[in-house]
Design a protein around this nucleic acid. Sequence first.
RNA 1: GGCCUCAUGGUCAAGCGGUUAAGACGCUGCCCUCUCACGGCAGAAACUGGGGUUCGAUUCCCCAUGGGGCUACCA
Length: 479
Amino acid sequence: MKRVRTRFAPSPTGFMHLGGLRTALYAYLYAKSNGGDFILRIEDTDQQRYVEGAIDVIYNSLKESGLYYDEGPDIGGNYGPYVQSERKEIYAEYAKKLIDLGGAYYCFCSKERLESLTDANGNRKYDKHCLHLPKEEVERRIAAGEPYVIRQNIPTEGTSSYEDLIYGTINVDYDELEDNILIKSDGMPTYNFANVIDDHLMGITHVIRGTEYLSSTPKYNLMYDAFGWERPVYIHLPTIMKDATRKLSKRYGDANFDDFVNKGYLKEAIINYVALLGWAPKDNVEKMTLSEMIEKFSLDGISKSPSIFDEVKLRWLNGEYIRALGEEEFYEAALPFLQKSKVNGKYDLKKIAKLLHGRTEVLGEIPEKIDWLAEIEPYDLSLYDNKKNKTDREVAKNLLPEIKKYLAEIDDFSNDNLYQTLSAKAAEAGIKSGALFWIMRIAITGQGVTPGGATEMAALLGKEETLERIDFSMDLLNK
RNA sequence: GGCCUCAUGGUCAAGCGGUUAAGACGCUGCCCUCUCACGGCAGAAACUGGGGUUCGAUUCCCCAUGGGGCUACCA
């Protein structure tokens, strides 16, 4: 059997879109699960849309997410060049061949004439006006420097049929298709042409791409057939949506790989989540490494209907990945975000990281979780109200001096010691420990929710700061 | 508008003629617990509608409805 070769062929127009990333991922998974090659090709035939630096974004995103390609512009290969703008001559050559084969023709029609073809409904279809131009006239006009394009010659009747591995048999009447442009007046090919030539020349066996090409694939097959080339196997993928009616797009933001990384999502989690949009593993285990995905990947798990991107579920999965991190790994991942917070320089970031580890779903929310730790500020005294522990501000007013006394006697401010000592003190004094810890926690943080219990917070703050904060709270209560 | 295509809880999704219609996220409740979170347990929640085919349709066919895509000198 022929070695499987798949490709990812993005155009460098900006960022790595998550929809594109998933297409790349599936192409990668399909190739790797079949022991084949995954190729990167840059489709930069539209100079208008080209964005500086976008190619590097593609390289980096792919590598960061672990989708290592076997051939590509930056790493080479036997089928290069892998950038379409560098293959202009190749397309010109094949375009000429296709013209000789009757599959294409020169067209000199002006924009104005094209527009005059628009009907009452606003639809336009090229009328093959230039198809029957005499060869001599064509040559004369080209020689005279007249601008021209090369159009595909599509049959006026008949039906085209092909098998898509996901969607099954697709039939399209040729009548529905237009004699679309293959080579633009600037000499660059359109996607319609370059994609066919390159896929064939690069030995791509399986074309994996979005459903936007489902109904235009007959045009490409026409060319494969005209050249006498074997058609590739087609695998079209459903769209990823932002909601029921809008597709995930750059326009709405947050659709880019980098955006999510910057927000504090782990790359592994993003890839894992994206893999789940449109594909389900047989064993139902959702958390997977890339190599596990390669093992489990199969086309019959791919769905046909568009799926909606759910950041809530991504958050959960990211949390799973974060919790699976080692203490040190988490610290390193969290560090940039810890440094952004107001506590940077005030408290031991490592200790904070330890407290935050099990409580963080997205790293980007770390600063807001701990900013208040930098300084205690007046707070709502109703925080002392706690039904379960039967506390309120009056109880707090009475208990706080006691708590202060206990704390003042403790020198080892480690969490373990604080917890044990204070628990013992509470038992001795006949105070419910829950009440003591509740009041103490509120008194030293001024927060209803904290990333640790009273003793953990005290251990973090240190003895001096803890006692100062107790004083602060006693003042507040006595006002 | 025309053509292609899709349709199971709020979301992702199993299912592929006979099931108490999985599972995950989210949600609700309980437990654990020095708050929260984690973890554990329990619960609510779905086959778009109408016709067929069949002994029997979520599953097959048709129509309707709704969604998506294409209809560029963009990919």
